[in-house]
């Protein structure tokens, strides 16, 4: 299983029936492929859609129906569309139960940097600052390291997305939470040892006594 699949399948286990969920671009988008059987989850695209569906079948494109990355998508039965003020009211107002976002760095207290690398990449924050500040639960989906360097760091070097700490970080190696403002190892990926995670992580991690293997749900996507 590749890193993205492990991360997406693990995060899908955080979904609950009836949740309103916003998925970012990249690995987060894959979470929609692994919704556990029997759950109905509403997916929001912040450009103004609840009920975002997969890409359309050949010949069924509607150019006015896109996701937040500008891709043409479909709308599922029961979908709703709305303007950007309502969309961000949903986000800031705490109506979005969970958001899943990519990350560049997460610090030892759970603060996320994911929107810019000054001098290299200045895309703009888009909706990321509102999502991290406003969603009820913030889950970061990211590879554990980049070019061999830990992305879970003692202190973010990159500009923060929000001072509000995230709730959960899921990588291809581990699941980390931030109780009492301290990075804490909760789970390891199948075949990964606690020592492997510690060796790959710059930030000091509290290791719980009950660290256990990540649940990844069923093999076959629902």
């Amino acid at each position: 299983m590749d890193a993205s699949t492990i991360i997406a399948r693990r995060i899908a286990q955080e979904l609950r029936d009836g949740m309103l969920v916003n998925l970012g671009i990249g690995i987060p988008t894959l979470v929609a492929n692994y919704v556990p059987a029997g759950l109905h989850v509403f997916f929001q695209s912040e450009n103004g859609l609840i009920g975002t569906g997969p890409v359309p079948e050949e010949g069924m494109r509607q150019a006015r129906l896109t996701d937040a990355g500008g891709r043409v998508v479909t709308a599922l039965p029961g979908a709703a569309t709305f303007d950007s003020a309502t969309s961000f009211g949903l986000i800031r107002g705490g109506h979005v139960d969970m958001t899943v976002l990519g990350g560049l760095e997460v610090d030892v207290t759970g603060r996320l940097a994911n929107w810019t690398i000054p001098g290299k990449m200045v895309p703009g924050m888009g909706g990321a600052m509102d999502l991290v500040s406003g969603a009820r639960r913030v889950v970061v989906a990211m590879q554990h390291t980049a070019k061999g360097k830990s992305k879970i760091v003692s202190q973010c070097r990159l500009p923060l997305t929000s001072v509000r700490p995230v709730d959960l970080v899921v990588t291809e190696l581990a699941v980390i939470a931030f109780p009492n403002g301290r990075a804490t190892l909760l789970e390891v990926a199948p075949g990964v040892q606690v020592a492997d995670v510690l060796a790959a992580t710059e930030a000091p991690l509290i290791v719980r006594d009950d660290v256990h293997p990540m649940p990844l749900g069923s093999e076959v996507p629902a």
Partner: peptide
């Protein structure tokens, strides 16, 4: 847009999306 921003031809003020619409 990024090239014009770096070249100083276009001033870009980046605003969080929810803040911009509000």
């Amino acid at each position: 847009t990024q090239q014009q921003m770096i070249a100083g031809k276009t001033d870009v003020e980046l605003v969080p999306q929810g803040t911009l619409i509000e």
